[in-house]
Nucleic acid binder design. Structure first.
Length: 272
DNA sequence: AACATTCGCAACCGCCTGGGT
DNA sequence: GACCCAGGCGGTTGCGAATGT
């Protein structure tokens, strides 16, 4: 299907809320011709908008498959956990929430989830003094770990269910299962493999030093080493962790979400 | 009822990045 | 390498609705 061609707009561009008529024009055009170059979409679709505005409207509102309505508890848990690890990487986070846009997630964070986190941190601060990472000097309340802890407190996750499942796999009780300390684990679907490529600073406990080999590693797999030296912004958020803190597991996030084991150590994961 | 404040959401702005020339 | 342009992203703003006083 061939897109119509046209020249640059000469009329003043409209701003503000989109009318149903404008939505219809944009939808019709993109469905029939695809967007191709967004800069020509408004011209060819007969809209007095700029390309960026059209793109945003399509992505955030008109695109098929968008989920409308309130966020489910599971979605909120996912956002909180991913935000704890990735920071304000809304587009990355949205990749793990089908049908949700980065803008929607960002809005929900600023209007609701951020407050939930700070509330739980206040409660935490009253219960115990802050933990300071000896390697980074960062306090726990400013790290992703605190977010993960807050998630655990705020959900209905049943620790005994998890440890029972663990036991069924291992034929032995989960280690230190009755305490409530989170291990620091990267789940397979939290960070894309691409984000690790080229970061040879990541090494495995069993000596596999090439990140690209991580899929072949045992579950105990990857222990981060010198994470703070990684150049990618996407892993900067990990710099709060020391070498001994961070583990990678190819398990899927929702398989053991909120997994909580006291006195966690790497061997504990070997048989999961 | 009137006004003020807060909330939720859509949209805009400015910056960054990557591709093309 | 420098420049331009489009796309993508995160931060911020604006505004109507909801809620509080």
């Amino acid at each position: 299907m061939k897109c119509k061609q046209s020249e640059k707009p000469k009329t003043k561009q409209k701003r503000g809320l989109w009318s149903p008529d404008e939505d219809q024009k944009l939808r019709d055009y993109v469905v029939n011709y695809g967007h191709g170059s967004w800069s020509v979409v408004p011209i060819n679709a007969g809209l007095q908008r700029n390309g960026k505005s059209c793109r945003l409207r399509w992505i955030n509102y008109l695109r098929p498959g968008l989920k409308k309505g309130a966020f489910s508890m599971q979605e909120e848990e996912t956002i909180l956990a991913l935000h704890g690890l990735l920071g304000n990487k809304w587009s990355l986070i949205s990749q793990h929430l089908p049908g949700r846009t980065d803008n929607e997630i960002k809005n929900h964070w600023h209007s609701y989830l951020k407050k939930q986190v700070s509330k739980s941190e206040n409660v935490e601060a009253k219960i115990k003094p802050e933990y300071t990472n000896s390697n980074t000097g960062c306090t726990e309340s400013s790290s992703s770990l605190s977010y993960m802890n807050s998630i655990t407190r705020n959900t209905s996750f049943d620790l005994s269910d998890f440890t029972n499942n663990l036991s069924s796999v291992t034929n032995q009780p989960g280690p230190h299962a009755q305490t409530n300390k989170l291990p620091k684990i990267l789940f397979a679907d939290w960070l894309s493999l691409e984000e690790f490529h080229g970061h040879e600073s990541f090494v495995c406990k069993d000596g596999i030093s090439n990140v690209s080999n991580y899929q072949d590693a045992p579950v105990s797999g990857m222990i981060s080493n010198e994470v703070s030296t990684a150049s990618s912004e996407n892993v900067d958020c990990l710099s709060n962790y020391s070498n001994e803190d961070l583990f990678y597991t190819p398990m899927k996030f929702d398989q053991i979400f909120n997994f909580s084991v006291g006195d966690f150590n790497i061997e504990d994961l070997l048989y999961i």
